[in-house]
Design a protein around this nucleic acid. Structure first.
Length: 591
RNA sequence: GGUCUCGUAGCUCAGCUGGAUAGAGCACCUGCCUUCUAAGCAGGCGGUCCCAGGUUCGAAUCCUGGCGGGAUCACCA
């Protein structure tokens, strides 16, 4: 039983004994820094049932606890707040077991655990990844890791949008203007090469529209009738008909893109257990829709299109199959969801997709529920805000994007400049340094993105580079490196548990912070929020640095102190590494 | 217009399942490297928690109504 549960129970006992009143529950919270104490009982709510003054009641409960609970050292009452000071013995005892737990903070999966598939990234195959994808990737990867740590079995996946008119645009432009250029001949990364032709298409398309307008064609009509667009549409039809040449080109160019993505994912440190391709799953969706039509979940309009009526739920009607029988976005997502459950026996899914699709997922989840799937109750749209630039929205077609590869390179470069300025790394080889710069640069970027609430939109200003000081990734990495440095210097055995020890205020603070880790992981999993882990890491590290700067570890007076403080430092290091692992951020042994 | 979402210090953000005097970082100002890594620590400056009502012993937090930003309401994905 946790100390919180134990205290809550004892407070109930106390009130029952002293006032013959049975409390429904007891509110316990961590004591605010300004007051002396570790845990605080809020007395106010009890006044409804116990007619007395809050200070007196608090004091009588405090007396009872001090006498009957061995972990309670003393107490004080301020207004209606009963502040409880826990004994050093309690903290030491707790730390004794905690310091040797290998996966501190994580819970192993059991038979009762959920099996959850986390979808993230899910790019189109016509252009390279940009900053928006980075946010998506980091969030999805991190939430997957957090769910794992919280005791779930997790599969990571992405759905690749490999079909549709947008791919045909790149293909057509390459065919027309590409002169058979390949990643090898151009030296361009595959996804960059394909993206180049996507932009090229748009430029040519716009030129054609202007020319048509000059000839007196209205803008709307020109947009629809530009020869290039018509040609792209024709290409899509050929693709769907299985035209050999078109399919071969499609395969070739998609492969270029996959090769490019592979590199970016590796740089970012994210991975997938399974890829799904839209071109594979959209047909299954159609079958399911037809089944649902028989069951009466959907209905057919006169023109043959299939719809679902969600007006009872406060939503609109939504199309699930076109009049010509072809699949829409929704059809494919229905099919994909069902395919996944068949493949992996999952009972829950997390979709990491931008908040512009809130409505889509609301509808998707409702449809799956109406189709009667039990697992539909356990679907979650991890919706996140867009990443905008000071100039506004990022648009691939207009070239106003922060490219993922470029950004990673820039961050590494900045890390290098700062490190060279500080000049602490002279002793290392070129390769070691380069690795370190990447770890730090990526640490800065990942932390910067993950520390904010996913729902909020991020304004990213490339001019003001991401910080490396204060509440940042490098700050936390630095503390980790510093701890490792201390551990390397230790020349005595520090395995023995310390008892009968009087805790320093800073040690006590730090211990309390360490104790919070497991519940933070659980909360982060419940809320699908890496930000909670990031903020926890920061608080822990602040606590440690204050401890580190104020009292000496290796220079402590007694051996007992030295041993205990080294144990503390080591445990903090372990916790930082674990927490950053959940964020997908590496920690360096030195920096 | 309907729906969803965000609004906290000059800037970036915590806090939001109601609790004490609203917290960090950046920026600005003061101190601290002959002793464990100063990417650090200690401190100062800085707030009508968008506004107005309501519920409550108690509201940044919950409810209602405004205001402002964003998203969405396609036989696009």
């Amino acid at each position: 039983m946790s100390i919180q549960d134990k205290l809550a129970k004892e407070v109930k006992n106390a009130v029952e004994k002293l006032h013959q009143v049975i409390l429904p529950d007891v509110e316990l919270q961590t004591t605010r820094k300004e007051f002396e104490g570790d845990l605080t009982v809020v007395v106010f709510p009890m006044l409804r049932q116990v007619k007395t003054n809050p200070v007196k009641l608090g004091e009588s409960i405090g007396d009872y606890l001090q006498e009957n609970v061995k972990e309670v050292a003393k107490y004080n009452v301020v207004k209606g707040f009963l502040n409880i000071v826990l004994s050093d013995a309690y903290f030491l005892q707790d730390f004794k077991t905690l310091k040797d737990i290998t996966n501190y903070g994580s819970v192993a999966a059991t038979e009762k655990s959920d099996t959850i598939m986390v979808e993230y990234s899910s790019p189109n195959t016509n252009k390279p990844l940009h900053l928006g994808h980075i946010r998506n990737n980091l969030l999805g990867y991190s939430v997957a890791e957090i769910l794992k740590a919280a005791g779930n079995t997790v599969y990571k996946t992405q759905i690749i949008n490999d079909r549709g008119i947008h791919i045909c645009k790149s293909m057509l432009a390459w065919k027309k203007f590409g002169n058979q250029e390949t990643p090898e001949t151009s030296g361009l990364k595959g996804d960059k090469l394909v993206g180049k032709y996507y932009v090229k298409f748009d430029q040519e398309y716009k030129t054609q529209i202007k020319e048509l307008e000059k000839q007196g064609v209205p803008e709307e009509k020109a947009k629809k009738e530009a020869p290039l667009l018509l040609e792209a549409q024709k290409m899509l039809q050929k693709w769907e008909a299985g035209d050999k040449e078109t399919v071969a080109l499609w395969e070739k160019m998609n492969q270029w893109v996959y090769d490019g993505f592979k590199k970016t994912y590796a740089e970012l440190g994210v991975d997938f257990d399974k890829n799904y391709y839209e071109s594979d799953t959209y047909l299954l969706g159609k079958e399911v829709v037809n089944d649902g039509l028989e069951k009466g979940v959907f209905y057919k309009k006169e023109d043959g299109s299939v719809w679902i009526d969600l007006t009872d739920e406060g939503l609109d009607e939504k199309i699930v199959l076109r009049a010509d029988g072809t699949a829409v976005y929704m059809t494919q997502d229905i099919g994909t969801a069902i395919q996944r459950v068949e493949d992996y026996a999952i009972n829950g899914m997390v979709y990491t997709v931008g908040n512009e699709q809130d409505y889509h997922f609301k509808v998707l989840f409702l449809i799956l529920k109406k189709l009667g799937f039990a697992w539909a109750e356990n679907l979650y749209h991890l919706s996140y805000g867009m990443v905008d630039l000071p100039s506004g929205k990022m648009k691939s077609r207009e070239g106003t994007v922060v490219d993922a590869d470029d950004l990673i390179k820039d961050m590494t470069q900045t890390a290098q400049e700062i490190a060279e300025d500080l000049g602490k790394l002279e002793a290392y080889t070129k390769e070691e340094k380069q690795d370190l710069y990447k770890i730090i640069g990526l640490g800065a970027l990942k932390y910067y993105i993950l520390k904010v609430d996913p729902r909020k939109r991020i304004l990213f200003n490339p001019e003001e580079s991401v910080d490396f000081q204060g509440n940042t990734g490098p700050f936390i990495q630095y503390t980790y490196a510093r701890i490792q440095s201390i551990l390397r210097k230790v020349d005595f055995d520090y395995a023995a548990a310390i008892e009968n020890y009087s805790l320093h205020e800073k040690e006590r603070e730090l211990l309390k912070q360490i104790q919070l880790y497991p519940e933070t992981v659980q909360l982060a999993a419940e809320q699908h929020s890496p930000a909670l882990i990031a903020n926890y890491s920061y608080d822990l590290v602040k606590s440690f640095n204050s401890f580190y700067q104020n009292i000496s570890i290796l220079g402590a007076d007694s051996m007992e102190e030295k041993i205990f403080r080294v144990q503390l430092a080591k445990t903090v290091g372990k916790t930082i590494k674990s927490a950053f692992g959940l964020l997908g951020i590496e920690v360096p042994e030195r920096m």
